[in-house]
Simulated assay, not measured.
Amino acid sequence: MHGVKRVRESPEAAAAKKLREQSKIKEYLALNDDVLAKKASNDWSREAFNLTTRILQINPEFYTAWNYRRNILLQGIFPGSSPKEINDLLTDDLSMTTASLKMHPKVYWIWNHRRWCLENVPDGPGTGTEGDANGWRKTNWDRELFVVDKMLDADSRNFHAWSYRRYVLARMPVARPETAELTYTTRKIESNFSNFSAWHQRTKILSSLWGSGKLDYSKSKEEGKSLRNAMYTDPNDQSVWIYHRWLMGAGADKDVLDREIAIIQELLDEQPDSKWCMESLVHYKQLLLKNHSSSVDAATITNDCRRLLGDLRVLDPARRRRYEEIEKQLLC
């Protein structure tokens, strides 16, 4: 770091450090051999289980150890355990992997093991829900959503956590209201417009709400108004523009297209170097030509698109070929 004086390591200290590292490697390799030997002999004992705990705390990407751990539980430990003991074991594993995720938030195998734990929670009462067969499951799944919330607070764009969140929401014994999840995505987007995963989650929730009739599709106009705030805040953020295209769809009526084209043109006048403004204008003008050709001035719109594509080739030369292909399609 700047301003911090580097302390030169003595030869003795460097040698001691090297010895420690070599010792750790030797211990890890011995532990690895022990785990694989026990797995090969179908050892389903508690001792073997504890060995998987040790090695996975060192190397959480050792998927063979995760698979072995699950087999130990299924074949060696669960058969002699009560439902409460099984629930306690799974809760402990969830706690263990929570600690692992703090250090390794994007290791797939940790998330995968959490799925397995949740799916194997037995029937039984949970806190305050005595007599409810879903009690333990509800308690664990509710806690899981809280854990994911914390993970996304730490890194709001962790796509592993967003994918896992959709999994949790789909499997919860007592469904979380979709409107609550919509509010959650609003909060995440307002804190960071570049959060593509939050925009993507929003498309899933809105599609479900509109499809089930729980939310009037006409309210998509309100969605467009809030989206425009994001567009004006950062016109070069692709997440916003991709969501805008999803919201508009491929068959928007002429009035809607005319309105959005005028809004984007106004923004481009303020931000003349906005690539996404230019690309979106070309996209929506193409939709006008495709879906409303009988009620528009096709020649004028085509010329507008060619001019915009020319500007894009200058502004974004890396995608020059792509813009040339779009222009060829215009002339077909």
Rank of each mutant, 00 (worst) to 15 (best):
F193S: 09
M248L: 10
N229P: 01
W141A: 01
A175M: 03
V168P: 03
E181C: 09
K138H: 08
A161Q: 04
L145G: 08
L182C: 06
D149K: 14
S163P: 00
G213A: 02
S163M: 03
V240I: 14
K204Q: 12
K225V: 07
Y232A: 04
R245Q: 09
S220I: 07
A170Q: 08
G224P: 01
R165W: 02
S197A: 12
I205F: 05
F146H: 08
A180N: 02
M151I: 05
W141Y: 15
V240Y: 03
N134G: 06
K225Y: 04
R171M: 15
A180P: 00
P122S: 09
T183Q: 09
R202K: 15
K219F: 14
R157W: 03
D149A: 01
G135M: 04
S220L: 10
R166K: 09
H160N: 08
P125C: 06
K214M: 08
A170N: 03
Y243Q: 09
K150L: 15
E222A: 05
P122L: 08
G124P: 11
G131F: 08
S226I: 11
D123F: 05
R228N: 10
K221Y: 10
Y232D: 06
R166S: 14
T233Q: 15
T185I: 06
V147Y: 11
K219T: 10
N140G: 00
S239E: 09
S218K: 15
N236R: 14
L206P: 03
A170C: 02
A170G: 06
M231I: 11
L182F: 05
R157Y: 02
Y184R: 15
F193T: 10
L145K: 02
K138C: 11
V240N: 06
L206R: 10
V148G: 00
D153E: 15
T127W: 13
P177R: 02
T139H: 09
L182M: 12
T179N: 05
N229C: 14
P122K: 08
A133I: 13
W246P: 12
E144I: 00
T185Y: 05
A175T: 03
M231V: 14
M231G: 04
S239A: 10
R165V: 01
N195Y: 12
P125A: 12
P177T: 00
F146I: 08
D155S: 05
R137T: 04
D237K: 01
Y164T: 00
S226V: 11
I242W: 07
R202M: 15
V174C: 03
P122I: 06
S156C: 11
T233W: 04
L215W: 07
K150W: 00
L247H: 05
E222S: 08
A154S: 11
G211C: 03
T183P: 00
D142R: 12
T185Q: 02
S191V: 07
Y184E: 11
